[in-house]
Design a binder for these strands. Structure first.
Length: 115
DNA sequence: CCCATGACTTGAA
DNA sequence: TTTCAAGCCATGG
């Protein structure tokens, strides 16, 4: 295991776990994950976790995580700015102007789906 | 050790 | 309806 601190590992682990549960061709939001973890207002940490997920194993589908409006706010943190969109479109998720088309339908909320 | 910042969200003014 | 501020907490200077 990685050389993360204890608390970090715990929180990040959960974020990764949930992120990996997002079905193929579906997306979720930072807030939804945070909410599922019980910390509805730590969406920022979810984003921070995504930033660290680059080195996470197994890999985390960070491209399926967007903000609550379905915007690809984290695209700039990928290897290339357009990688996120390409990955999504490769799964059949349409992206227009950095926003997920039909986000309301494609949105996958662990709090509800995993009930 | 203290301060600022960030892949966010929500609720109040 | 739009704008502002606060809460989350790890990380870096």
């Amino acid at each position: 295991m990685p050389q993360y601190s204890k608390t970090t590992t715990s929180f990040f682990e959960k974020v990764y776990e949930v992120a990996r549960l997002v079905p193929y061709g579906r997306v979720t939001s930072y807030g939804d994950i945070a909410n599922y973890l019980g910390t509805g207002k730590s969406a920022r940490m979810v984003g921070w976790a995504m930033n660290a997920c680059r080195t996470a194993m197994p890999p985390v589908p960070a491209h399926r995580v967007v903000n609550r409006l379905g915007w690809l706010t984290g695209k700039g943190h990928f290897e290339t700015p357009d990688l996120m969109q390409k990955l999504l479109e490769a799964e059949g998720v349409k992206v227009k102007d950095n926003k997920v088309v039909e986000f309301d339908k494609l949105r996958w909320q662990p709090l509800i789906e995993l009930n």
